[in-house]
Design a protein around this nucleic acid. Structure first.
Lengths: 225, 225
DNA sequence: TGGGTAATTTAGCCGCCACTAAATCTCCGT
DNA sequence: ACGGAGATTTAGTGGCGGCTAAATTACCCA
């Protein structure tokens, strides 16, 4: 739906979802894709066959799916659009970081590459979006970040918060209220055992402490200091 | 496709086309709609029936179509989105007025009203788009301009150019090269008979003359001075 | 190693929105 | 008043991208 020669909205959503799944867990299973896109597994099978025929991915029936280079580039183009849109909406139009996701999700299928490039220029060619996710370049290069979840850090670790998921507005509002935004420096003050909460100390004056549930801590990506 | 509770892209295109036709020539005939949207007349009949059932228009078979208030408001919402998008893209992102139409045409179906309102605010709530078309308000009010085509002016008439069509990039580039942009003051210097060209004098220093073909002159809307 | 369960695919379907071909209506001019 | 041209509608179809229900496959465990 974007510029000429474009893929359908559906196709773009599939490619993006498959890319993200591969990024996280290795192979993308039919079920995972269905869950991520809120579709029935049967629907996914159908689309996957079409995408295999169009050369966007390889499909071994009953096994899984892997993007081809073509598919990878298409997925990255969508992600570039999404992340630049989020950045633009927040920076230039006063959106709150907690609810830009939905708007970007619709626009990413409608904007042309020209518009995206103009936005990128207006923003000074940013490398990260406001949630800390790296923005792919026009050519499909993307920074391979080696971030770890906060949940994996041992007590005493010094880390910088680098990236948070952009999908859930409520969670984002909560994180912002805690001051947990990308680039904040943290020290892991304590870890409760058995999947309990993590306590972090914000480097401020005076330092403040935050207690973070295990699930939330698993979704915060940090870099060691 | 826009914000929640939205109409499909097709429906929005139909409503907009019908509104524009009614604005110009009174009733909107099946054939006119088909031509404007580049669809077969048979397709139009089908969609028109659906739109009648959904209460967006009244349809007297074999006669014509008229928008209901619901349909009118929906059409105006799309036009507001389109015109504000064009204004924003030109003003804030450096688009040329000759080719912003296609981009706006796609985006008008994807942007939320929140985004449009933010753009309007950033632009200072403009009343006209860069081609001179009035921008409907949030509430669906639109200025009823009483403009006449330049082609209808007699020799000696003093007019201001107020509005030009936004659809044809090449024509827009040509107009711009002639200095024929909205708000320019003109005097009709001469009219050739039998649908011949019109010569206008631009109020400048020194005044310059332009010869405009009849067809082009019919598409330029002016206001008497 | 044979089942049972969960994942996946197939089969058949539906809504949306186009299309062509054929039928029908309107209306104008003689 | 009527015949024909042109406009419009009906009938039947197709692609896209969903769905459910049923069949099939993979895999783990006893």
């Amino acid at each position: 739906m974007s510029a000429p020669g474009a893929l359908s909205r559906s196709v773009e959503d599939y490619l993006k979802a498959i890319y993200r799944l591969a990024e996280e867990g290795g192979t993308a299973a039919t079920n995972d894709i269905a869950q991520r896109l809120d579709l029935s597994p049967a629907s996914v099978t159908g689309m996957v066959k079409k995408l295999a025929e169009s050369g966007h991915l390889e499909h071994v029936p009953y096994r899984g799916v892997r993007l081809t280079e073509t598919g990878r580039l298409a997925a990255l183009a969508v992600m570039r659009r999404h992340r630049l849109l989020e950045t633009y909406l927040i920076t230039k139009l006063g959106y709150d970081w907690s609810n830009v996701h939905a708007e970007a999700e619709r626009l990413e299928h409608a904007v042309s590459d020209e518009l995206i490039d103009r936005m990128a220029f207006a923003l000074g060619e940013p490398k990260y979006d406001p949630h800390g996710a790296p923005i792919p370049t026009r050519n499909g290069d993307i920074e391979r970040t080696a971030l770890e979840p906060l949940a994996a850090m041992e007590a005493g670790a010094h880390v910088a918060l680098r990236q948070v998921g952009d999908g859930d507005p409520e969670r984002l509002r909560y994180l912002k209220s805690l001051g947990l935004v990308p680039m904040v420096e943290l020290e892991v003050a304590a870890r409760a055992p058995f999947g309990g909460p993590i306590t972090v100390r914000l480097s401020g004056n005076p330092p403040e402490e935050r207690v973070i549930g295990a699930e939330l801590a698993a979704s915060l990506l940090v870099e060691r200091r």
